[in-house]
């Protein structure tokens, strides 16, 4: 099956700065988004280098992202729910990467993630399906904001699915 996996956070432009290969098409929808797929983005979520990021860099990245994406700094009520989602993801990334032991575990898991079995179905994936539309909307908004900030972010490019 054409497994077009969507992790609601993967497709956000601020995640696309690191050059990670092996990418799934991010504009498509599937209810089969898996845990591994989400996790493979932890470094991207925080926009830090998987190899060299220091604890200090991770903390700083987390804070600056929090100041931009925490629901408390989002004053558009229609976007509250999405910024909630994004922040939850940001936290998951931070919690793993800021803990040396979890980070090590996760790094080794990353190496193995290709062969992981995608059968896990969770409620989370169902919500992601529901949220697809708003995520796309948020993406647009977020991109606009990042462009205004005139820095490293580029509009996301559509990649070919590897299958």
């Amino acid at each position: 099956m054409d497994a077009l996996l969507l992790s609601s956070f993967q497709c956000l432009p601020w995640l696309s700065s690191t050059k990670q290969q092996r990418h799934y098409s991010h504009m498509h929808l599937s209810c089969r988004a898996t845990k591994v797929e989400c996790e493979s983005n932890f470094y991207k979520v925080l926009s830090v280098s998987p190899k060299s990021a220091t604890m200090d860099e991770i903390k700083r990245a987390y804070r600056s992202m929090a100041l931009q994406y925490h629901p408390d700094v989002c004053h558009d009520p229609s976007m509250k729910e999405e910024s909630n989602r994004m922040f939850v993801q940001l936290n998951a990334a931070y919690e793993t990467l800021s803990n040396p032991m979890l980070r090590q575990q996760y790094d080794s898991q990353l190496g193995l993630s290709v062969s992981h079995d995608y059968s896990e179905t969770s409620l989370r994936s169902l919500w992601e399906e529901e949220q697809h539309q708003v995520v796309v909307e948020l993406k647009t908004r977020s991109r606009r904001r990042m462009e205004q900030k005139a820095n490293r972010m580029r509009a996301p490019t559509r990649r070919k699915d590897r299958n």
């Binding site: 925490h70 629901p71 408390d72 509250k80 729910e81 910024s83 909630n84 922040f87 969770s122 409620l123 989370r124």
Partner: peptide, 10 residues
């Protein structure tokens, strides 16, 4: 039985 809890910013 999947039990999920969600606390939003409010």
């Amino acid at each position: 039985i999947n039990v999920c809890m969600d606390i939003d910013a409010a």
